[in-house]
Amino acid sequence: MTEFNDFGYVEKAFANIREVVAKQGKNIHRAASLMADAIAADKLIHVYAGGGHTTLAMGEMFFRAGGLANINPLMETALSVFNQALKYLELERTVNFGSSIIKYYDIQKDDLVIIFHNIGINPATIDAAAEIKKRGGRIIAVASSYWQSEMPPDHFIRHPNGKNLFDYADVAIDDYNPVGDAVVNVPGLDTPIAPVSNVVDFTIAHLLEIETVRLCVERGITPPVWSSANAPGGDEKNAAYLKKYKPLIKSL
């Protein structure tokens, strides 16, 4: 029996996170300032994901113990990993599908939307971003500069307009996800394994929340934060937020 070996996965994931912390702090602060502004104005913070496993980052921010209660996921199951895989893959590459989701949720002028898509070039992402900007919304984009810069301009997964998610962002947060996502090479296997994008994007989501809460407290604002529904007293603490946000957030 051979000894356990992670082939450097944990260190590579932490190295990616450390790079985000070292280089993206100012952008995380700028994004959190917009989120704190939304809380101060008693508005929702909308979260969208452009398809596949990036939808899990949207889910990580929604109805989460210790998370913000005013998060509104622009949820479309057809784009998520809870759809059949080949179906969501086809739909995230379908032009105008993303814009239809933004229209359905009726994003308004000055609404704040966080968009997760580490690749940041596919039609479901670009069309959603374009529709948000068309409506006067503001965008915090979490994506990888590597994917956006290294993918060929004529690659078939790109939106026909050739734009990147960061082209639409009011604040762009680079997650430094490498092209291909998987970071471990096991000797004897040609295909890399062990992706890091969700580990890093989940961390960015929580860093945004932490900085937003800090800024709210600094401004004398009590941010709306969920308690764990599974801990004693959690349901009682959450009751007021549910009463307030259930009529406003379709996924509650």
Rank of each mutant, 00 (worst) to 15 (best):
N118P: 08
V217I: 11
A15N: 11
K244Q: 13
G66T: 06
R158I: 03
E236K: 05
A231M: 15
T203Q: 06
H159A: 09
E218R: 05
Q84C: 01
V81N: 05
E90M: 14
K250V: 12
E211M: 06
A128E: 00
A172C: 09
D111I: 12
C216T: 02
G162P: 09
D42I: 01
A231Q: 14
E11D: 15
I107S: 11
I249Q: 09
A130D: 15
N27I: 03
P160K: 02
F156L: 10
T77A: 12
I221Q: 03
Y105E: 07
F63G: 04
I193N: 07
H155Q: 12
G234F: 03
K12S: 08
N27L: 01
G51E: 05
E236F: 07
L89P: 00
E3Q: 14
A49W: 01
M151S: 02
R214K: 11
G136M: 12
A85I: 15
V199A: 13
N83R: 08
H53T: 11
A38C: 07
K12M: 12
P232D: 09
A240P: 02
D42S: 14
P195Y: 06
Q108W: 02
F14Y: 11
I115W: 00
H159C: 02
L44H: 12
G66I: 07
V225T: 13
A65V: 04
D167M: 04
V186N: 07
E92K: 09
P232S: 04
A172K: 02
D6C: 10
L79C: 10
V179N: 08
I114A: 04
L215Q: 10
K250G: 05
S99Y: 02
K237V: 02
T77V: 15
V196D: 00
G220S: 05
G188Q: 11
E11Y: 00
L248M: 15
L252D: 07
K243E: 11
G25M: 03
N70Q: 09
G233S: 08
T203K: 06
N122L: 06
A182V: 08
V179H: 08
I115Q: 02
P73L: 04
N185L: 14
G67I: 03
E150R: 14
S100L: 10
R219N: 13
L252I: 15
I17P: 03
R219T: 01
E209K: 04
A32Y: 01
P153E: 12
I121T: 01
P247L: 10
H155M: 07
S144N: 03
D167H: 14
L86I: 08
G120T: 13
K87N: 14
G120I: 09
L56R: 01
G51I: 06
D42Y: 11
G220T: 10
A13M: 14
A172E: 06
I204R: 02
T203G: 08
D110G: 08
E60S: 14
V171E: 07
I45S: 02
V179A: 06
V183W: 01
K12W: 05
M151K: 02
N198K: 06
K134E: 15
F82D: 05
Y241L: 15
K87W: 11
N164F: 10
P224T: 13
V200S: 04
S228V: 13
I126V: 10
D110E: 13
